[in-house]
Design a protein around this nucleic acid. Structure first.
Lengths: 196, 196
DNA sequence: CCCCTTGGTGTTCATTTGATCAACAAGAAG
DNA sequence: CTTCTTGTTGATCAAATGAACACCAAGGGG
């Protein structure tokens, strides 16, 4: 086998990169031998950089989850000098740019099905720290009513489902998600104002 | 081991029932020994009723997918003597009663992630044979415009995501999904009429 | 009551898979 | 050029897993 020495830091990164792509594709039950082959490395070497497969999986989680959500998004959402439509569009534009990724979407779904606690914590965070402020801003813009949590999850789901169709089910979806998202937000706001 | 003889048909059904529940929970990589234990049967017996694990998995697919969608739903959707809101609510009421099940939702998602062809065919069917007629009826009721496919997927996703939150991510959701669905439909229609 | 069909079990096999370890060799240091 | 550190490999182990098979016994037919 071609034996090239890399310094531990970069080798670890290469393995992690391969692991993210590999687990995203086949799930966490994928054998470490196949993963090693993809990383261009022997299976034994994985265990020099990670004590166990579980540890490698957790490093993948960390790599994928950490630093995805930018706190500045919320600051901009609260900037009431802009119309609520614009703020929501910008927020979900940034949000989908962050998570509409083959790796993120699929690893999140594999982990969700497997019952990983990180998912629930992440989604509780979405509900409490993202959707709640959004609802508050929509309520403030409307002046009379404020969307409830289920209303907000409804909007959220209508947008996220586009990523699910694309990355989980691998179905054809529009290249540019911008207009679709703006349509969803526009309908949500208009529908919220006129009626339900 | 308690050895009770059942006629092949019922035994096969019992194994299939257990397999549906088991694979829904742990995914298709779950070992056949655990499945057999759940079915109250030896692992070897599985191979008397199914030639391979793959065959068992396919039998599970058949059991779960077949006969879920009722053609009568579409007939009722096209009954223009009723307001479009009512027709959509009834349709999605029936649809969610059919698929908002621990087993269906999770097996569908496991299969989707694994890239099973049945999923794509099912979703193409949803798009072509369910959402398209729905869009036509909404267009006819509106008189001027007709929602595009992405608009319809948007409505669909906003509703299905509720099931994803409940059964995939195991997050708390309202016991009665009726009002949530009606809210989503109401907002969609109102938003479609007034604006986007 | 006996027999005999066949549903069911216990055991075993070949692979696969996570993990370990002694040995090898790349490449910096002297 | 030699040496020594250590990144990397090939071989190997034990457990898990899909599958096969000889044998056992439940329970209907005579």
């Amino acid at each position: 086998m071609a034996r090239r020495r890399l310094d531990p830091a970069t080798r670890r990164e290469k393995i992690l990169d391969a692991a993210v792509a590999y687990f995203a594709e086949v799930g966490f039950d994928g054998p470490t031998r196949d993963l090693a082959a993809r990383a261009g490395v022997t299976q034994a070497l994985l265990y020099r950089y990670f004590p166990s497969k579980q540890a490698l999986v957790e490093a993948v989680f960390e790599r994928v989850y950490l630093g995805r959500l930018d706190p500045r998004w919320l600051v901009e959402v609260r900037d009431r000098s802009l119309p609520i439509e614009t703020r929501l569009s910008r927020f979900y534009g940034a949000y989908t740019r962050a998570i509409f990724t083959y790796e993120w979407m699929r690893i999140f779904m594999w982990a969700g099905l497997s019952g990983d606690a990180l998912n629930r914590r992440y989604l509780e965070h979405v509900g409490d720290s993202l959707l709640a402020p959004l609802a508050e801003e929509i309520g403030a813009a409307d002046g009379r009513r404020r969307p409830g949590p289920e209303d907000m999850w409804n909007l959220h789901g209508s947008i996220v489902y586009l990523g699910i169709r694309r990355f989980i089910y691998r179905l054809p979806t529009p290249d540019d998600v911008g207009p679709v998202i703006e349509g969803a937000i526009g309908r949500f706001l208009a529908g919220f104002r006129h009626g339900a």
